[in-house]
């Protein structure tokens, strides 16, 4: 195997792991945000939550 193979594999794997991490964090964030919005739409709010509509923070 040539040295180019080892370099390409190293950068390729690093990119793959980094992209998986970014994708996981983004998708997880979207899913949690959607769940919070659904709960709020069904009238379930945190006791300390502000009373403005659409607030998910």
């Amino acid at each position: 195997m040539s040295h180019t193979f080892y370099i390409a594999m190293s950068y390729g794997l690093t990119a793959l792991v980094a992209l998986c991490l970014i994708g996981w964090v983004m998708l997880d964030g979207r899913a949690r945000k959607r769940e919070l919005a659904e709960l709020e739409m069904s009238g379930i709010r945190r006791r300390s939550a502000p009373h403005s509509a659409g607030e998910t923070r």
Binding site: G29, R32, K33, E35, L36, L39, R45, T56
Partner: peptide, 13 residues
């Protein structure tokens, strides 16, 4: 941030 949201979802459920 996601973990805080996750805990809020659990608490609200």
């Amino acid at each position: 941030r996601n973990e805080i949201w996750r805990r809020r979802v659990t608490a609200q459920r």
